[in-house]
């Protein structure tokens, strides 16, 4: 992949984080009632409507969370790739492959979690 495309993706994911992050915060803080701390509310599966995870039964919100996950991962790991290259003083292809693998794992694992939340009854 050419560096131009990588950086274009970097800029696009930066904007996407603002969009999806905004939706995420807006959804959680302004549309759903909280009971107790954020942690308690998040982990409460039993007493609707005081539960956050079922929010993601809504397909659009689940997709927006997926968008947030993917954009944050791409943006963060590309940033880390650049920081590490400058820290080491040269580009290391194995570090880049390692970062790509960790990022891919995070996306797959996160997608699985979002899918589980989406299919919650």
């Amino acid at each position: 992949m050419r560096e131009r495309n990588v950086m274009l993706l970097h800029y696009a994911t930066g904007l996407a984080i603002l969009l999806f992050g905004g939706i995420h915060i807006w959804t959680l803080f302004f549309t759903y009632p909280f009971q107790g701390t954020i942690w308690e509310t998040t982990m409460r599966f039993d007493s609707m409507p005081y539960a956050i995870l079922p929010v993601y039964r809504n397909t659009l919100l689940a997709l927006s969370l997926l968008g947030l996950l993917v954009s944050t991962t791409i943006h963060a790991f590309n940033g880390l790739r650049i920081i590490l290259a400058e820290l080491i003083g040269k580009r290391n292809i194995w570090i880049e492959r390692g970062l790509f693998a960790i990022g891919a794992f995070l996306v797959i694992y996160g997608t699985r979690t979002i899918l589980i939340a989406h299919m919650l009854v």
């Binding site: 050419r2 560096e3 131009r4 990588v6 950086m7 650049i82 290259a85 400058e86 580009r91």
Partner: peptide, 9 residues
Amino acid sequence: VDKFEGVWR
């Protein structure tokens, strides 16, 4: 200049 050590750094 469109490479890792080019304009984007």
